[in-house]
Structure formats: structure tokens, C-alpha cells
């Protein structure tokens, strides 16, 4: 395995699963399969969070992403009746163009990180990622952004409701259809 040989096995497995899930999300022809693969990816990312001493983040990730958001996606897919392999696939040319663009960015970002020269200062403090610590920081230093996110959420909710609401003309139109 070369460069990977001295890495811990759980990390390798998790990373492997993460990338595999991500690839399946992108390549699956069935949107529902994509959603399920994405949920898998989120689970593995949560596992990574645990490895990184971010326990609360792992739980939140599961609840918010894998739980709420992905269910929402799944729900919309079902609602729109897109749960079959109905999706038109782009031509190979598009695939090549997309791969080149994404690959280019990958190379550039990797190169950027390598030249960045990141100084590592590993902390030994335990409990950084626990809810006690996070809550304290959130309620002191990040109080204003925290309140602002509340406003953001409210406006997003209002926007979503407004967008999702049918007006009378629409109803007439869909009845005609």
C-alpha cells in the first residue's frame, strides 16, 4: 500500500468508504441511490469527527445532515416522482470537461496546500469538542453571529414557504394540465 501502509486501518477504511460513497453519489443514475449514498458518506464523515475529538459535531452532523436535510431531499425526490432512472445523462464530452475542470482544481488546491507550509501545534486538551465547551464559546464569543443565524433561518423559512406556496393562477394552470 505504499504511503498508506503506516496509517491506522480505521482511518483508511473510513476514508475509503467516504470517497466511495461520494463517487456513488455523483455517478449513480438513480437519484434515490444517490441520496442513500450521500447519507452513508455523512455517516463516515461523522466518524471522522469522532476521530478528530469533535464528538458533539459528529452527533449534530448525523442529526442535521443525515437526518433532517437528507430526509428533506428524499422527500422532495419522492414528491416529484423522480425515484426512477429517468435522468438524462450528459454526453461523454461533458464528463471529460467536468473531470478536467474538477481535476484541475484538485491539482491546484493540493499544490496550494503543499506550498502553504502548515505549522502543526497539536493540543492535548481533552473535551474541546464537548457540548460544554462549545456552548460556552457559542454563547460568549460567537453570540452575535449566533443571533444572526437565527434571523437567517427565519428568513430562509419564510422564503421557502413563499416559494413553495401555490398561488391561484398556478392551481388553475395545473388543473388545466
Amino acid at each position: 500500500m505504499g504511503v498508506f501502509s503506516n496509517l491506522p486501518l480505521p482511518f483508511l477504511i473510513l476514508s475509503f468508504l467516504t470517497i466511495l460513497g461520494a463517487l456513488y453519489v455523483v455517478t449513480s443514475k438513480n437519484p434515490v441511490h444517490s441520496v442513500l449514498a450521500l447519507i452513508l458518506t455523512f455517516f463516515t464523515i461523522s466518524a471522522h469527527y469522532v476521530l478528530l475529538n469533535a464528538q458533539f459535531l459528529a452527533i449534530v452532523n448525523l442529526m442535521v445532515y443525515a437526518g433532517a436535510i437528507m430526509v428533506l431531499f428524499l422527500f422532495v425526490l419522492m414528491l416529484l416522482n423522480l425515484n426512477k432512472e429517468s435522468e438524462p445523462i450528459k454526453s461523454n464530452l461533458w464528463g471529460i470537461a467536468a473531470a478536467i475542470s474538477a481535476g484541475l482544481l484538485l491539482v491546484v488546491i493540493t499544490a496550494a496546500f503543499q506550498t502553504a507550509g502548515i505549522a502543526v501545534m497539536k493540543s492535548n486538551a481533552e473535551g474541546i469538542g464537548l457540548v460544554k465547551n462549545l456552548g460556552r464559546v457559542l454563547m460568549t464569543e460567537y453570540l452575535v453571529p449566533f443571533e444572526l443565524t437565527g434571523i437567517l433561518f427565519v428568513s430562509a423559512m419564510v422564503g421557502a414557504v413563499l416559494l413553495g406556496k401555490r398561488d391561484k393562477n398556478d392551481i388553475v394552470k395545473s388543473e388545466e394540465i
Binding site: 463517487l23 453519489v25 437519484p31 435522468e87 438524462p88 464528463g95 474538477a102
Partner: peptide, 17 residues
């Protein structure tokens, strides 16, 4: 992961994906 996501954005046509 980021690049895979980017590739998906560029490659797929379904807005939900």
C-alpha cells in the same frame, strides 16, 4: 471529497443531485 462534489456539480443535470 471537494473535487468529487465539484465534478458532480459540473457533470449532473438533475438539480436535486
Amino acid at each position: 471529497l471537494f473535487s468529487i462534489g465539484l465534478f458532480g456539480v459540473l457533470f449532473r443535470r438533475n438539480a436535486i443531485i
